[in-house]
C-alpha cells in the first residue's frame, strides 16, 4: 500500500477538505511545492492559485485558494486559506480607514490604494483562470 498523508484545508468560514492523500501540491510564494508523506516540517505563505490533492492513481481534487498559509508536519498538511484579498497596501489602507473612523475624519481615498487593490484582484483573477484552464484540460483527456 502506498503511503498517505493527512490533509486539512480550511478557510475562516468553512472546512474545505479533510482526508488522506498521496501527494499535495500547493502554490507556495517561491514556487509550487509538492508534499509527500514524511516531509520535513515546513511553513510557507501561499499565493493565489490551486491546491491539488492527489488521492490515488487518476484521482485528484483541486481547490482554488486566494492565498493563505501552508504548514507541513511529517504526517500532516494544513492549508489555512484566506477568505479575504490580502496585500500589504490594502491592509494598510484598511488600518488607515479604521483610524479615520475613530477620528471621525472624512478624507478622500488614495488613488494608490485603488491601484494596489486592482493589482491584487488581477493576480487573483489570473490564478482563477489558470485553474479553470487546467480543469478543462483534465476533462478533455478523460
Amino acid at each position: 500500500m502506498t503511503m498517505t498523508i493527512h490533509v486539512d484545508i480550511v478557510s475562516a468560514e468553512a472546512e474545505i477538505f479533510s482526508g488522506l492523500a498521496e501527494v499535495v501540491y500547493a502554490p507556495a510564494v517561491q514556487g509550487e511545492v509538492g508534499v509527500m508523506p514524511r516531509h520535513t516540517p515546513f511553513l510557507s505563505p501561499l499565493k493565489p492559485g490551486e491546491v491539488r490533492v492527489h488521492l490515488g492513481p487518476n484521482q485528484e481534487e483541486s481547490f482554488y485558494i486566494s492565498g493563505g498559509m501552508l504548514e507541513v508536519q511529517p504526517h500532516l498538511v494544513t492549508v489555512l486559506a484566506d477568505t479575504a484579498l490580502r496585500a500589504k497596501d490594502i491592509d494598510e489602507a484598511a488600518a488607515l480607514e479604521a483610524k479615520q473612523r475613530a477620528e471621525k475624519m472624512l478624507a478622500d481615498r488614495n488613488a494608490e490604494i485603488d491601484y494596489s487593490r486592482a493589482h491584487a484582484e488581477l493576480a487573483e483573477a489570473m490564478a482563477q483562470l489558470q485553474a479553470l484552464d487546467r480543469l478543462r484540460k483534465i476533462k478533455q483527456v478523460r
Binding site: 479575504a84 490594502i90 484598511a94 479604521a98 483610524k99
Partner: peptide, 24 residues
C-alpha cells in the same frame, strides 16, 4: 483613548471588516 473603531458590521461580518482595526 480610542484609536480605531469598526461599526455596522451586520449579522454576517467578514474578516475584511476587521483587518484595518487589527492592523492598527
Amino acid at each position: 483613548n480610542v484609536v480605531a473603531q469598526a461599526t455596522h458590521l451586520g449579522d454576517n461580518p467578514t474578516l475584511e471588516d476587521l483587518i484595518g482595526l487589527i492592523k492598527v
